[in-house]
Design a protein around this nucleic acid. Structure first.
Lengths: 225, 225
DNA sequence: TGTACATCAGTGAACGCGCGTTCACTGATGTAC
DNA sequence: TGTACATCAGTGAACGCGCGTTCACTGATGTAC
């Protein structure tokens, strides 16, 4: 009877929730808040944007902002959170035979393909990419981003340990591969955010190019050209 | 005439400053503030300690605290900053022939030897070690620590690039080795801080053990035992 | 189709808190003669 | 050795600011009959 539904909840591929007028209004309010936040952050900077600014832009009260996001930081990383769970899912789906480092690489390539669409459900992808650079250039956000990355690495290390039937606390290798992989990703994020090409393609290209350099960078002394 | 001097300024091996009654009083005030801060941070936690608490404990005004430290965070990382410059110096001193990854490893081993003493000039080493664990368990501090670590890595990548006569922006390898090295160090910091043995020796031991696992962790698929 | 009641998103205003800043001032240390 | 002045570490009190919280309330959506 009330099945007519356009804005299906994004989610990370879960059961697909219920509709309901009230529910959809909530979604809209949250999306508006999120977009307003990211727009203001990219336009005037994260620090220079107060929670009141965001609420004003979204035409709700500050009180309402805090109903949807526990903190200003949570709003800033809402989209990243979505992207992260896509990546974790991709790692889980890798065939067990694959070498761990390859599994991580493939998961990254794979998940980028689907993440874009998922993000678009929430905010324009282009806005997210621009905000991604704001993260890198804002000390408080960069710090939070790195801490979150560390937490993500711990989750992934456990996934890797599981697929290799290892105890993550007994064998150093799962945490080490994941840390190495993550470190290289972060180097490329930094370089990408400092460059001119804001596109997702540019980031992907840097990612793969730098991952290819892991082995040459670690082996012996470097040939001087 | 006024050369009789006990508390020679710590410094990172620079010219060795002047004495002076006023100057020494300043040193004492700063050291007292620093120790008070670290003691309170380890006892009641970083967030639960206000700048006023620290000033009270050091028996100066809050205003005075801010004359010595630009922020609460700066006080928290004052000792780390010292340790970092020791490490950078050690990297600079490595013989040019050495493979980059080995140079980093050796620098770490070497600098730990001298860092301890340098820290003792400022605060008890044991206090610093205990505080180091507080960093890992306090989200805001861990975040700041990781951001600082990233900045340090950039500095070191440049040192490595220099010794290999490479352009850090043209060749990915300097940043990649340093990022990999740093990532492994951070994994061990985390594990160390979660364990029972607070000693410097325990941290060093973890460091080397995990660095040994980089190659096995990255190569192919892992043998299932 | 209509009425009565329940739920709950959103309001608005006020507040607590701690960081970091500003101001005009005091008094000890240092210096010149 | 003493006097006059300069420097500058430290004071104390007040303030601005933004985050996040609390409170009693309103009105739209949802549901039961």
């Amino acid at each position: 009877m009330k099945m007519a539904d356009t804005a299906v909840t994004a989610g990370n591929g879960q059961p697909v929730p219920r509709p309901g007028l009230r529910e959809r209004k909530k979604q809209r309010t949250r999306d508006t808040l999120l977009r307003s936040a990211l727009e203001l952050f990219t336009e005037q900077g994260y620090e220079a944007t107060t929670v009141d600014d965001i609420a004003d832009a979204a035409e709700v009260s500050q009180r309402t902002f805090f109903r949807y996001f526990a903190s200003k930081e949570e709003a800033a990383f809402f989209v990243s959170r979505l992207a992260e769970s896509h990546f974790v899912d991709a790692v889980r789906r890798r065939p067990p035979g694959e070498a761990p480092l390859d599994a991580l690489r493939q998961s990254l390539v794979e998940s980028w393909d689907t993440i874009g669409e998922a993000i678009e459900q929430l905010v324009p992808l282009e806005l997210h990419m621009r905000f991604y650079r704001v993260i890198e250039s804002t000390p408080a956000l960069l710090a939070a981003h790195l801490r979150r990355a560390t937490e993500l690495e711990e989750r992934i290390a456990r996934v890797i340990a599981d697929r290799e039937h290892l105890d993550v606390d007994a064998d150093p290798r799962p945490r080490v591969v994941v840390a190495v992989f993550g470190a290289v990703i972060r180097v490329t994020e930094r370089i990408w955010s400092a460059g001119d090409d804001v596109s997702l393609a540019a980031l992907r290209q840097l990612n793969t190019a730098y991952l290819d350099q892991v082995e040459p960078a670690l082996t012996g002394s470097w040939r001087t050209d």
